[in-house]
Every structure is written in structure tokens, then in C-alpha cells.
């Protein structure tokens, strides 16, 4: 077995194979996590980047999100069956109302004309991991 710097070529090749395998595993894991994101339990609604309201996905409700100077801009947010969607909106494009119901963590519905963003999140846990050593 030929040795260079004390490291044989076979070992070196195996090293590379293992590292590639690990990277493939990590990539597959990332894809899996992205494709099968878990459900969120909460929707955050922001208007102009400011928090407008927080609603639990578990509680069915209809929320009229009124924005604009005189509150004439309307997005009717409906939460039903653990999903959130915009039932109707007074915005010109109607894209938000056409969006499919959201429930996965990270999914969102955006109403650009009204600057309303509805995002599914998981409520923050206080006991976040503190890995030291």
C-alpha cells in the first residue's frame, strides 16, 4: 500500500466517499424537511410589516382585516379545519383570495396592494436548545 504523508490512497479514497455520502444524506434531509414541513399552529398577520394579530389555527374564526386610512381595505381571513385562507378581499388583483389554504410552517399568503402578510408559524418555545460543548 503506497503511503504519502502517512495517508494511504485507499484511505484517502474512502474518506472522500464517506464525505460525499454524508453530504448526500444532508442534502436529502434538507429536501425532505422542505417537502414535508410540519404543520404550524398559529398564523401571524402583519400589515406594513407591523404585527396586526396572532390567531390559533385550532380555533375556527373569521377575521376582517381592515387596513388603510379609513379601514376601507378589507381582507377577510378565515380559519377553518386547521387551515387559513383569505375568503374575499377588496384588493384589485384578488391574488390573496385565490391563494390555496395554508397550514404548513412557513407558508404565507400575501396581499401586496394592502401590504398584508399572513404567515403560518409554530408558536415560539421558551426552552430553546442551548448547546454549549
Amino acid at each position: 500500500m503506497k503511503e504519502r504523508n502517512g495517508i494511504s490512497k485507499v484511505h484517502l479514497r474512502n474518506d472522500v466517499v464517506m464525505i460525499i455520502l454524508l453530504l448526500v444524506l444532508a442534502g436529502a434531509g434538507a429536501l425532505y424537511l422542505f417537502a414535508f414541513r410540519g404543520s404550524g399552529d398559529t398564523v401571524n398577520v402583519t400589515v406594513d410589516g407591523e404585527l396586526y394579530g396572532v390567531y390559533a389555527l385550532s380555533e375556527p374564526r373569521v377575521e376582517e382585516i381592515r387596513t388603510g386610512e379609513d379601514g376601507s381595505r378589507l381582507n377577510r381571513l378565515v380559519i377553518r379545519d386547521g387551515k387559513a385562507y383569505v375568503e374575499s378581499a377588496s384588493c384589485p388583483d384578488g391574488i390573496c383570495a385565490a391563494h390555496r389554504p395554508v397550514f404548513r410552517r412557513g407558508e404565507s399568503i400575501v396581499c401586496l396592494p394592502h401590504r398584508v402578510v399572513i404567515t403560518v408559524v409554530t408558536e415560539q418555545r421558551a426552552d430553546s436548545p442551548d448547546i454549549v460543548a
Partner: peptide, 27 residues
């Protein structure tokens, strides 16, 4: 099978995996 570098890589990744799995279980 591996050079010391390979063993070190496997050990480093295993260290992280062990920590995260523990955190997943505990939290």
C-alpha cells in the same frame, strides 16, 4: 477503512448528530 482525517470527520458529524438527537428527545 479511513485515514485519521476521515475518522475525525465521522467523529465530528457523530458528535453533532448525538447532540441534536438528544435535544430533539429532551425538547
Amino acid at each position: 477503512w479511513l485515514s485519521p482525517v476521515g475518522v475525525s470527520v465521522a467523529g465530528g458529524v457523530a458528535h453533532n448528530v448525538g447532540q441534536i438527537l438528544t435535544a430533539m428527545l429532551l425538547l
